[in-house]
Simulated scan of single mutants.
Amino acid sequence: MKETTARFPDLINIIKEFCKPAVSTFIIDAEIVGVDRKIGNKLMSFQELSSRERGSKNSSISMDSIKVDICIFVFDIMFFNGERLLAYPLRQRRNYLKDLFLEEKLGYLEYAKEFTVESDEAGRSDESTLSRITSFFQDACSSSCEGIMAKSLDVDAGYTASKRSDAWLKVKRDYIEGVGDSLDLVPIGGWHGNGRKAGWYSPFLMACYNPDAEEYQSVCRVMTGFTDSFYKEMKEFFSGEKILSKKPPYYQTDESPDLWFSPELVWEIRGADLTISPVHHAAMGLVHPSRGISVRLPRYVCSVLDRKPEDCSTAEDIACMFNSQTRKMNVNNDVKRD
């Protein structure tokens, strides 16, 4: 819900070029993705897209200053020429969506890739359907996407804005064993929770271990994947002597949690991908000379009971994972802090 028009004058130009003349107003569900048009419209990382200049309320960035090109991937539509479409089923909204633009242009404006499974094909025993879905998902992952969305087409298939719905299922690469690697990290700090999580710790500050320097280096904050009973258990566990009076010298991070914890536990954490971070210190100096590596969209999986904190994922492990991940990122030593 933030006004960012000034940051994307190239988006405005793309919309003006490809919108049909009869279209006056619309609201679409879409994503702006950084692309490298010089090498086959290769998808770029979210971190690289975030490095674009921001512009201001009163002035847009100039087209000449744009160093990261974008492509608009269109998913869905909610409003068209004054007509509210939220209650319409997805099959009908698709028709409106196809009437919106003149054409697609790879690397500029594209409809998200999709295919339809009709009701008579949707049985769990239908090997052909299962094969198509598996192949579609694998293609998405190999194309540097985070996963796929499965949406109901006709039944309970309206667009529910800003709410979770059973009619939409997100299947991410890190949800599937063997698709995304996980990290074993140590909780070294936490913040006091708000709202429903008041009285608990949320999020937690997670760290890897650098055996050479004998220090813990922060990787990310984690606040998803936990149950209420787990929150209560951790509030009881991290108490007394396990809460440190100040940040230890062997904790390396620019984060400032409300509380520092002694290194006691190891948790398995999965995420979308690894990015360069101005705040976290994991693997600092191994990939970027002055910045660490962080996990984007981290999620708690389980507690690792058979590992000691000093046996968790190392800084070198994280650097190797960063260099081998599918969605490659150019490491720019001059990336600005957001």
Rank of each mutant, 00 (worst) to 15 (best):
I293L: 14
R173E: 12
R327M: 08
D76A: 12
F79E: 12
A213L: 09
S143G: 10
A282F: 13
E146S: 14
G158Q: 04
F115R: 12
K2F: 09
I77R: 01
E48R: 08
E236D: 03
P89N: 03
D29S: 10
L85S: 09
R84A: 12
E310V: 15
S125G: 11
Q138L: 13
S245F: 11
F46T: 04
L185D: 14
L259S: 08
Y216D: 01
S59N: 15
A167W: 02
N194K: 15
E3P: 06
C71G: 14
M284E: 10
V23Q: 06
V68P: 00
I176G: 03
L43M: 02
R124T: 03
I276H: 02
S239Y: 15
S24L: 09
S303T: 15
K163M: 12
G240F: 07
E214K: 15
L100I: 00
V301S: 00
S256P: 10
L185H: 05
S119I: 12
G190P: 04
I28D: 12
R270P: 04
R124Q: 07
P289H: 12
I28A: 07
V68D: 04
F237Y: 06
V186I: 14
C312S: 14
L185E: 09
M223A: 14
K308V: 11
P289L: 03
E177R: 15
V33D: 05
R164W: 11
P263K: 03
I133D: 05
R327G: 08
K151E: 15
S239N: 15
H192I: 15
R94K: 04
K67M: 11
D154M: 09
S277V: 03
E255G: 02
A87S: 03
E104V: 04
P211W: 00
T227G: 08
R52D: 10
T224F: 09
I66T: 06
P211Q: 04
T4I: 15
R91N: 07
V335C: 07
V74G: 06
F75N: 10
D181Y: 06
C302D: 07
V74Q: 05
Q325V: 13
S62W: 11
T5C: 07
N95H: 04
S262V: 13
E127C: 13
N323M: 14
S65N: 15
I70L: 10
T116N: 11
F101I: 07
K38Y: 09
M206R: 02
S62Q: 09
R299V: 02
V222F: 02
P249H: 03
C145D: 10
I14H: 06
S290Y: 08
K246A: 04
I27W: 11
A22G: 02
D139L: 10
T275K: 03
V171Y: 10
F226Q: 00
T227W: 07
F101S: 05
L205Y: 08
R327Q: 08
S324N: 11
D317L: 00
D99L: 11
R299L: 01
R270Q: 09
L86Y: 07
Y250L: 13
L205Q: 00
Y300V: 00
D154L: 08
R7A: 14
T224E: 09
M63I: 12
P203T: 05
S24R: 13
N332P: 08
A319P: 06
E118T: 13
I276V: 10
I293C: 06
K67R: 13
K57M: 06
Q138M: 09
D126S: 13
L205C: 01
R299W: 05
W191Q: 07
D120I: 08
F137Q: 05
